[in-house]
């Protein structure tokens, strides 16, 4: 995010964010946008099931959407986080080739969103806090996904998450890609790991549409232009906090990475569980209602008076 920023100047929050990035002991330059994308996609980077394993106990996985199938790209279940029973939902990309194929590389099908919705509703009914872990390139582009209504499935999750009256904390642990990520992302607190990315489209997709060409250079330029790094998102007011990673990235020391994620999740949950259900929903609504508003201006315009 450093170079190639087209003269866009950092303010307030960004300097704070850079402090976090540069506070790491060997502290060279923070990684560029495309380097962060590579770190976020690193094959050894810890995934949802690793975090569940390292941070939670007595995990009971919940399968299926009760409509069509069980989507392995999203895992969901109940577990103890500290002393508290929670619902946990996250994307799972898979590591071996076989597992990656089984899990569709973490790109959910409509069934995955509907499974998530079922678990959100379960948590709501029994007052369990919800932790979501975001790690997907985005929705699946296939015939079946369209036939079975992925637009409806994603939209329904946005509606459902907005209404929840239990505490919700989301953490982007790898790639947060478009609607497929947001379907797990409408939370009271949204955290991002230091090298995670969160974007409206993949740099590859953006380069293909706006630069009308792929190629490493264009993809890197798109990654920088999209402002998809954790410090960028913090500056834009779209996330609440950056969770530091071990030097070199989360994959270099998964246990340490998990410890840092766990500490941040616990701290925010402890604060949120003290709020009343109505307050939790209101606070979440206010948070999302404010996103981007600071960039609005007024420009005079003729009103449409087309029907006189």
């Amino acid at each position: 995010m450093k170079g190639n920023s087209n003269g866009h100047k950092a303010r307030g929050a960004k300097s704070r964010a850079i402090d976090i990035a540069t506070a790491q002991p060997p502290g060279p330059e923070p990684p560029s946008a495309i380097e962060r994308v590579r770190l976020a996609r690193h094959p050894s980077r810890p995934q949802t099931l690793d975090y569940i394993d390292l941070l939670m106990r007595d995990f009971i996985e919940i399968h299926g959407d009760r409509r069509f199938a069980d989507d392995a790209a999203i895992v969901a279940g109940l577990a103890y986080f500290g002393r508290r029973a929670v619902a946990v939902v996250g994307h799972q990309r898979g590591r071996s080739t076989t597992e990656r194929i089984k899990r569709n590389f973490g790109k959910p099908l409509p069934e995955g969103y509907r499974k998530a919705a079922r678990v959100y509703e379960l948590a709501e009914r029994f007052g369990l806090p919800i932790i979501t872990l975001i790690d997907t390139q985005g929705g699946e582009s296939g015939v079946g996904a369209e036939e079975r209504g992925q637009i409806e499935a994603i939209a329904r999750n946005l509606d459902l998450m907005a209404r929840l009256t239990v505490p919700t904390v989301a953490c982007v642990i790898g790639e947060g890609g478009s609607g497929g990520a947001l379907a797990l992302g409408v939370a009271n607190v949204v955290l991002m790991q230091e090298n995670a990315c969160y974007s409206v489209i993949t740099p590859e997709g953006c380069a293909a549409i706006l630069w009308r060409a792929g190629g490493e250079e264009n993809v890197a330029a798109a990654a920088a232009a999209l402002k998809l790094s954790a410090p960028d998102l913090l500056e834009l007011g779209l996330i609440d906090e950056i969770v530091p990673e071990p030097a070199g990235g989360a994959h270099t020391a998964p246990a340490e990475a998990a410890h840092l994620v766990g500490a941040a999740l616990a701290r925010h949950l402890e604060r949120l569980v003290k709020l009343k259900p109505g307050e939790l929903r209101k606070a979440r609504e206010r948070k999302f209602a404010a996103m981007g508003s600071r960039y609005l201006t007024r420009v005079s315009a003729e009103s449409d008076r087309s029907i006189d």
Partner: peptide
Amino acid sequence: ARMQEGALSLMQMAKVSA
């Protein structure tokens, strides 16, 4: 979503849905 506004545009999906 409008790519030129990056993740800001993504979050409008949540804003309107709420």
